[in-house]
Every structure is written in C-alpha cells, then in structure tokens.
Computed example of a mutant assay.
Amino acid sequence: MDALDDLDLRVSGCRACPRLVDWREEVARTKRAAFADQTYWGRPVPGFGPSDARLLIIGLAPAAHGGNRTGRMFTGDRSGDVLYQALYDVGLASQPTSVARDDGLELYGVRITAPVHCAPPDNKPTPGEREACRPWLVQELRLLRPTVRAAVVLGAFGWQATLPALAEAGWRVPRPRPAFGHGVRVGIDRSDGGDGSDGGGGPDGLDLFGCFHVSQRNTFTGKLTPAMLREVLSTAAQAAGLGK
C-alpha cells in the first residue's frame, strides 16, 4: 500500500464532523427508492485516481445518493455523468460513464478529490466543516506534489477551500488571492517568483484553473455546457502534459 492508498483508507474512516456523520449515515439507512436494493457506502469518500497524477480535479463534496452511495467521487449521479463524459471526450478516462466502484473506469493521469469528503445536507457544508476537512486535502496535495502540474477547481466553494490548502501544502499562492471565475488560470510557484502570471514555471509549478461546478443547476440551465467543460479540461490537460 502506497502513501496515497493509506491516506484514502484513513479518510474513509473519519468521524470528525457530527452533523455530516449523522446525515451520511441516515441517508445510507433510508436510501432513495430507486436504490433501495443497494448497500450504500455511507462513509467519507476518498479521492479517486492514480498516485502519480499530473492533473487534479477538485469538486465540492460527494452527493448524498451519488458518491455517498457508490463510494467513489462523482459516481452514480448526474454531475458525474457530465464530468466523466467530458473526461472521456478529451482522452482522460477509459469510458464515458461512472456508475459503480467496480465498473472498470480508469483515469489517465488524473485524480479527482474534494475539500469535503462527506455528503452534506442540501449540498452545503458549513465553513467549519470545510476547515475540519482541510487537513485531508493538504496531505493529498503534499503527496501529489512530485507529479501534479495542473488543477481544475469546480465552483467557488472549492476554489476558496483549495487556495489555503495549496499554501499549507507548500505552494506560493499569490496575494491578494485570485478570485474565482470560469476559465480563470493562475500560475502558482513559478520560476518567475510565484507572482501568479501565466505561462512558464519551475519544476514545482502548478497551473490552477477555475470552472463552473458540474451541478445540475449549472448544466441544466446552460451556465456550464459540455463544450465549456471540455475546453477547460483540454487546456488543463495540456498544461499538465496530458491529453490527446
């Protein structure tokens, strides 16, 4: 077992936030009618993807009847349907769907994680829950640092959680901290002194990309289209040295 596998195992046993523990376990007991015959995961959902990933995708938190049911990030819900189709389209996933932990899906040079690992009520973790979960993201970033070269953050909540985690994990985050926006690209820890300019960079450089979250609200209304998502993922993959 490598260090990231060990981290994932420890994440899945966390019980630090009473409200989240109660909620995820209640959902796992009561279930949704469509999944009444399934055994829910009902625990914190660890990251998914290879330990030498060059591209990191950071979401918000698992869905109550998605990751909280399947045990894998963005698996078994409509947000995941959109994300994995886009990853497949740009050559970063072995298949366009993600329905279960054992469905054979592989990610190519990509790892998916979140700043909050438990499904929260109404999809809204509290600031305190986000802070309680941040050490897991910090440890994950430290373990990925030798290989990761780009990160796509889905949504403003994830962006706000990722910047301090990056700073704590050893990257030089620009000050003032950059604002979230779809298509925003920020260079961090560059050879030019880490001032946040685009392009170029040293061996530990990281390109950080903002992207609207793949929530049903955003995808159903057209705020985030498949083409917009593919464009961000393609650009990030190129920055990380991946893709077609």
Rank of each mutant, 00 (worst) to 15 (best):
residue 147 T to E: 01
residue 215 S to F: 02
residue 190 R to T: 10
residue 166 L to D: 04
residue 136 W to R: 04
residue 164 P to F: 02
residue 160 Q to V: 12
residue 225 T to W: 05
residue 149 R to G: 05
residue 125 P to G: 01
residue 147 T to Y: 02
residue 145 R to H: 07
residue 139 Q to C: 06
residue 140 E to A: 09
residue 131 E to P: 04
residue 185 R to I: 07
residue 143 L to Y: 05
residue 126 T to D: 08
residue 191 S to P: 04
residue 193 G to S: 08
residue 214 V to A: 13
residue 187 G to N: 11
residue 208 L to Y: 04
residue 119 A to S: 00
residue 142 R to S: 05
residue 131 E to I: 06
residue 175 R to D: 11
residue 165 A to N: 09
residue 166 L to E: 10
residue 177 R to K: 15
residue 225 T to D: 07
residue 120 P to F: 04
residue 194 G to D: 11
residue 227 A to W: 08
residue 196 G to K: 06
residue 210 G to N: 12
residue 191 S to G: 15
residue 186 V to C: 06
residue 121 P to D: 00
residue 188 I to S: 04
residue 165 A to V: 10
residue 174 P to Q: 13
residue 150 A to T: 01
residue 157 F to Y: 14
residue 142 R to P: 04
residue 181 G to D: 15
residue 122 D to M: 09
residue 213 H to T: 12
residue 130 R to L: 10
residue 193 G to A: 12
residue 230 R to D: 09
residue 129 E to S: 14
residue 182 H to E: 13
residue 154 L to I: 07
residue 171 W to I: 05
residue 186 V to W: 01
residue 166 L to T: 03
residue 132 A to F: 03
residue 223 K to D: 11
residue 161 A to H: 10
residue 123 N to I: 11
residue 176 P to G: 13
residue 186 V to A: 01
residue 196 G to F: 03
residue 217 R to Y: 13
residue 164 P to A: 08
residue 176 P to C: 07
residue 205 G to C: 12
residue 196 G to Q: 03
residue 181 G to E: 14
residue 202 G to K: 01
residue 167 A to S: 12
residue 170 G to K: 08
residue 142 R to Q: 14
residue 123 N to K: 12
residue 137 L to A: 02
residue 159 W to I: 06
residue 121 P to Y: 00
residue 185 R to F: 08
residue 144 L to E: 02
residue 189 D to C: 12
residue 208 L to W: 03
residue 127 P to E: 10
residue 168 E to F: 02
residue 141 L to A: 06
residue 195 D to H: 15
residue 141 L to N: 03
residue 124 K to Y: 00
residue 223 K to P: 08
residue 127 P to D: 09
residue 157 F to Q: 13
residue 157 F to G: 11
residue 177 R to L: 13
residue 155 G to S: 07
residue 177 R to M: 15
residue 153 V to M: 01
residue 185 R to L: 10
residue 139 Q to Y: 06
residue 231 E to K: 00
